[in-house]
Simulated assay, not measured.
Amino acid sequence: MSSIELFAGAGGLAMGMARAGFQHSAVVEWDDDACQTIRENRTHYDSHGEDFVLFEGDARQFDLTPYAGRVEVISGGPPCQPFSLGGKHRGNLDERDMFPTAVQAVHKTMPRAFIFENVKGLLRQSFASYFEYTYLQLSHPEVVKRQGESWEEHLARLEGLHTSGKQPTYNVVFRLLNAADYGVPQKRERVFLVGFRSDLGIEWSFPEPTHSDVELLRAKWVTGEYWERHRIAKKNRPAIPERMRNRIKRLATEEREVTNRLPWMTVRDAISDLPDPEKPSLFTIPNHVFTPGARIYKGHTGSPYDEPSKTLKAGAHGVPGGENMLVRDDGSVRYFTVREAARLQTFPDEYIFHGAWGETMRQLGNAVPVKLAEVVANSVAKVLHEVN
């Protein structure tokens, strides 16, 4: 099935799509270093060994005409800075808001489905009207904004149409997903908007979580399986946090609820087999280089070894903050290497990132975790295959 990836960044969502069986006709990204990363790793996006167009430039300038009616799915993560908790929160007033471009791409190509991802800040109350506007545009992409019409006026027109009883062109659903619930070793909450062309008659819902924080607590503090797996002797294990004691006691005494969920993955699960980047090693691992200068300050305390990491962030001007630090067992901190951060985003080890450390960490901070992308994309691919 053919797809187009917009706002590709380092390629996490695009790779997840390829792993789900989609063949990219085009991948669109404006950043030079991110494009170089994709060029150096393009085999990860060729699910059927076919080539694709890599358009390096503004997505607003990409000619979608050749793809009209010929693409199954459009996917992408419109730049999130307008809505990010770490940004200036300007939303639709921010020139980096690319949701209008995403809507236009859907309108011009009329794919069978689309998958768009963004930061959870998109759901903040201050952006409620604009989120509704985006949702209704994606539901009715053919109802374009008129010349001189404000977005509020366009929203009112879309609301009237949507409540008139007319069937939307796309049936759209959205949900806030936590990547840790799907086997990613990172607490990363992102909004996914998924739509299917209504004439297809598809019924779809988001995939159920496969991993659980409760199961991680049980593995650490009830059965001890977590520490045993990592060969950590009892004398070297941390004490149960005081704030967790009552909860752990209940888990140990209550009848266990039967689920198929696995424990959340932790930083230790993800990177413990990599050599310490501060020590000499006989092996050279790509992108696994120590970067000095890590320090703790208010609001930036790093990620403990035995929890999923905090959300990796791009940081201002590409310089990552405390979320991109590891807290060692002795309480000291250091920055994650690019390779470690890539593992936390579930990129394969053979995937090589291009650019200086700050730039590559920015790429990773903006990326969709590959595993989360693959889970959503697989679910979409399954229902599309069923209506072929």
Rank of each mutant, 00 (worst) to 15 (best):
T101G: 09
E257N: 13
D269L: 06
L217P: 08
V327W: 01
P308Q: 04
A341W: 03
D306Y: 10
T163N: 14
T360F: 03
L364V: 04
L155F: 06
Y305V: 07
V383I: 09
A316V: 13
E40T: 10
N178S: 13
D63N: 09
Q345V: 03
H162G: 04
L193N: 00
G299I: 02
N92K: 12
H162Q: 12
L312F: 07
G293C: 08
R343H: 04
F52Y: 13
V53L: 14
K88M: 11
G11H: 03
R39Y: 02
P209N: 10
F22Q: 09
V172K: 05
G331D: 09
S272W: 11
F114N: 06
E159C: 11
H288I: 05
S198R: 12
G69Q: 06
H300N: 14
T169K: 11
L344G: 04
R60K: 14
S198D: 12
M110A: 14
K371S: 10
W204K: 13
W204H: 13
I232D: 13
E152C: 08
E50Q: 14
V119E: 04
A252F: 05
E374G: 06
I248Q: 05
W357L: 11
A367P: 07
M110S: 14
K108E: 15
G302V: 04
C80W: 00
Q186N: 09
V327S: 05
Q345W: 00
I115A: 01
G16V: 03
E50M: 12
W30E: 11
P348Q: 01
D269I: 04
S332P: 04
K249M: 12
A341C: 06
S332F: 00
A18W: 07
F83I: 07
V368M: 07
F353I: 07
H288A: 07
R328L: 12
G365V: 05
L64E: 01
S198F: 07
R243L: 07
D276V: 10
W227F: 08
G315D: 05
G148D: 10
A219D: 15
F22R: 08
A128Q: 14
T301W: 08
R362F: 01
L93E: 15
G76C: 04
E255V: 10
W357S: 13
I38E: 00
S212Y: 04
V53R: 13
N287M: 02
D58Q: 06
A294F: 07
Y351S: 00
F99N: 00
I285R: 11
N246G: 13
K234W: 10
Y335W: 11
A314N: 11
M1G: 12
A179I: 03
G148I: 06
D330L: 01
E242G: 02
R197V: 07
S75F: 00
G121W: 02
V143C: 11
V71I: 14
M110W: 09
P286Y: 02
I232N: 12
R190C: 10
K249R: 15
